[in-house]
Protein backbone atom coordinates (compact mmCIF):
# COMPACT_ATOMS: atom_id res chain seq x y z
CA UNK A 1 0.00 0.00 0.00
CA UNK A 2 1.13 3.54 -0.73
CA UNK A 3 2.60 4.87 2.56
CA UNK A 4 0.63 8.10 2.16
CA UNK A 5 -2.64 6.17 1.93
CA UNK A 6 -1.61 4.04 4.88
CA UNK A 7 -0.90 7.17 6.90
CA UNK A 8 -4.21 8.78 5.84
CA UNK A 9 -6.20 5.69 6.85
CA UNK A 10 -4.49 5.46 10.21
CA UNK A 11 -5.25 9.11 10.89
CA UNK A 12 -8.91 8.62 10.00
CA UNK A 13 -9.23 5.67 12.39
CA UNK A 14 -7.28 7.43 15.15
CA UNK A 15 -9.57 10.45 14.83
CA UNK A 16 -12.66 8.20 14.88
CA UNK A 17 -11.55 6.68 18.18
CA UNK A 18 -10.63 10.16 19.44
CA UNK A 19 -14.25 11.24 18.95
CA UNK A 20 -15.58 8.06 20.62
CA UNK A 21 -13.25 8.62 23.60
CA UNK A 22 -14.29 12.24 23.99
CA UNK A 23 -17.97 11.30 23.86
CA UNK A 24 -17.36 8.72 26.60
CA UNK A 25 -15.77 11.45 28.73
CA UNK A 26 -18.84 13.60 28.14
CA UNK A 27 -21.12 10.70 29.13
CA UNK A 28 -19.31 10.65 32.49
CA UNK A 29 -20.13 14.33 33.01
CA UNK A 30 -23.83 13.58 32.47
CA UNK A 31 -23.59 10.64 34.88
CA UNK A 32 -21.83 12.64 37.57
CA UNK A 33 -24.49 15.33 37.45
CA UNK A 34 -27.62 13.21 36.88
CA UNK A 35 -30.48 13.78 37.00
CA UNK A 36 -30.47 17.58 37.00
CA UNK A 37 -27.28 18.01 34.93
CA UNK A 38 -26.53 21.36 36.56
CA UNK A 39 -23.06 22.05 35.20
CA UNK A 40 -20.70 24.18 37.29
CA UNK A 41 -18.06 26.41 35.66
CA UNK A 42 -15.23 23.87 35.93
CA UNK A 43 -17.32 21.13 34.34
CA UNK A 44 -18.59 23.52 31.68
CA UNK A 45 -15.04 24.44 30.71
CA UNK A 46 -14.08 20.76 30.61
CA UNK A 47 -17.13 19.94 28.51
CA UNK A 48 -16.52 22.75 26.01
CA UNK A 49 -12.91 21.68 25.70
CA UNK A 50 -13.96 18.13 24.83
CA UNK A 51 -16.52 19.34 22.30
CA UNK A 52 -13.82 21.49 20.67
CA UNK A 53 -11.43 18.55 20.43
CA UNK A 54 -14.14 16.27 19.05
CA UNK A 55 -15.06 18.88 16.44
CA UNK A 56 -11.41 19.14 15.41
CA UNK A 57 -11.18 15.35 15.01
CA UNK A 58 -14.40 15.27 12.97
CA UNK A 59 -13.05 18.12 10.78
CA UNK A 60 -9.90 16.03 10.27
CA UNK A 61 -11.95 13.07 9.08
CA UNK A 62 -14.01 15.29 6.77
CA UNK A 63 -10.92 16.94 5.33
CA UNK A 64 -9.45 13.55 4.47
CA UNK A 65 -12.35 12.60 2.20
Amino acid sequence: MDPAIKQRNKQRVDQTFRVIDLMEDIRDIWRETAPLQEIDEARKENLLNKIKKARKALDGIEASL
Partner: peptide
Protein backbone atom coordinates in the same frame (compact mmCIF):
# COMPACT_ATOMS: atom_id res chain seq x y z
CA UNK B 1 -27.52 6.44 33.80
CA UNK B 2 -26.78 9.72 32.04
CA UNK B 3 -30.36 10.85 32.71
CA UNK B 4 -31.30 9.04 35.92
CA UNK B 5 -29.88 8.16 39.29
CA UNK B 6 -30.03 4.37 39.31
CA UNK B 7 -30.42 2.86 42.79
CA UNK B 8 -30.54 -0.80 41.72
CA UNK B 9 -27.99 -2.57 43.98
CA UNK B 10 -27.29 -5.03 41.20
CA UNK B 11 -26.03 -2.22 39.00
CA UNK B 12 -24.49 0.60 41.03
CA UNK B 13 -20.97 -0.84 41.36
CA UNK B 14 -21.09 -2.35 37.90
CA UNK B 15 -21.31 0.95 36.07
CA UNK B 16 -18.40 1.11 33.68
CA UNK B 17 -16.13 4.16 33.78
CA UNK B 18 -15.24 6.11 30.64
CA UNK B 19 -11.85 4.35 30.61
CA UNK B 20 -13.55 0.95 30.56
CA UNK B 21 -16.02 1.98 27.86
CA UNK B 22 -13.19 3.33 25.69
CA UNK B 23 -11.29 0.05 26.00
CA UNK B 24 -14.44 -1.97 25.26
CA UNK B 25 -14.98 0.05 22.06
Amino acid sequence: DELMINLNPLQTAGRASAAVRKAVA
